[in-house]
């Protein structure tokens, strides 16, 4: 590249300083290390890991994924090795990757959430913690972020046990997402991540069986982009903390829309499953847009939708 003008792509999420605003969303990038040699991590601002729970989880019965016309339904059910194995086996390999890591955590109770966050707080090499308050695929468990009081309680408890950057990932499946976002903010979250998937299902009419083993799952992919964009705009217009916006982003144009709507960083999800190197292309597209619009600092782009 010739005469590269000084463009600032760095963004700040709590105490976390990212080289660029692209985050690979939890569940779509593993622990990063699986993709070594395949992905250019220089274009990835941060990786949100697969959600870790206190104990190992086997996950949900297969089939766990089904593609519909414009999106993908999944019900993996937080299959993960548990926090101990994560720390002893995964973290070491992750350390060799030159990007930031946001460790996504899940729990069935405030006790479980607190225990795991405590463990991670004591662990070096953990850059930030994302509390998954929004997984749609846990049987007999309510989604925490469907209830603003529960959201407040969980985030408040976790704030007490960690000084690391704490991100609350919330569900779009709620009548008033702004009030949930505000509850997380008031409880001390450093940032918000939205959206997680929408409830969805599909049925094979020949066998009359659901395509997903767990009957229903979470919907993602291009179909949800306009809906997640709307929610990110609503939340970012009100809260004072950074919003990591995403849901159905497939290219740079979509990522720019989320930045214009007020997101500080954008997350790529389902698209990573198809093009693991998508971050590189999206980042290049954002840089090209900034040049074209003569924007020197990505933070100037944030929330600059023209209304």
């Amino acid at each position: 590249m010739m005469n590269r003008p000084k463009t600032n792509l760095g963004v700040t999420i709590g105490k976390l300083r990212l080289a660029n605003p692209i985050i690979c969303a939890s569940g779509t990038f593993g622990f990063g290390e699986e993709l070594r040699g395949f992905v250019d991590f220089g274009s990835v601002g941060a990786i949100a890991t697969k959600t870790i729970t206190l104990e190992p989880r086997a996950g949900n019965p297969p089939p766990r994924i089904f593609e519909t016309e414009c999106g993908v339904i999944n019900s993996v059910g937080l299959e993960n090795p548990g926090v101990d194995k994560f720390i002893s086996e995964k973290l070491k390999a992750m350390r060799e990757i030159d990007t930031k890591f946001i460790i996504s955590v899940g729990g069935g109770s405030i006790f479980e959430y607190s225990k795991i966050v405590q463990r991670l707080d004591e662990t070096k090499d953990v850059d930030a913690i994302e509390v998954n308050l929004s997984c749609p695929n846990i049987k007999n468990k309510k989604i925490v972020s469907q209830d603003k009081k529960e959201t407040y309680k969980v985030v408040k408890a976790l704030r007490k046990v960690t000084s690391k950057t704490l991100i609350a990932k919330i569900t779009p499946e709620v009548s008033d997402i702004v009030s949930v976002a505000v509850a997380a903010q008031d409880a001390g979250a450093d940032a918000l991540a939205l959206v997680n998937t929408f409830f969805a299902m599909a049925i094979n009419i020949e066998t009359a069986k659901p395509y997903i083993g767990n009957i229903y799952g979470g919907y993602s992919g291009p179909a949800i982009k306009p809906m997640s964009l709307y929610r990110v705009w609503r939340v970012a217009s009100v809260v004072k903390i950074p919003v990591i916006g995403g849901g159905g982003i497939t290219d740079a144009d979509a990522a720019i829309e989320f930045l214009l709507a007020g997101a500080t960083a954008v997350s790529l999800g389902t698209v990573n499953l198809v093009y693991p190197n998508k971050a590189k292309e999206v980042l290049a597209g954002i840089i090209e847009y900034m040049r074209r619009k003569n924007i020197k600092d990505i933070n100037k782009l944030r929330g600059s939708m023209n209304v």
Binding site: T28, F29, G30, E34, P62, R64, P276
Partner: peptide, 17 residues
Amino acid sequence: EQFMGCGLGICCACTIE
């Protein structure tokens, strides 16, 4: 065979029992 996500072992979608 199974419905598959990433194909690279990262999404844990194509499991069988």
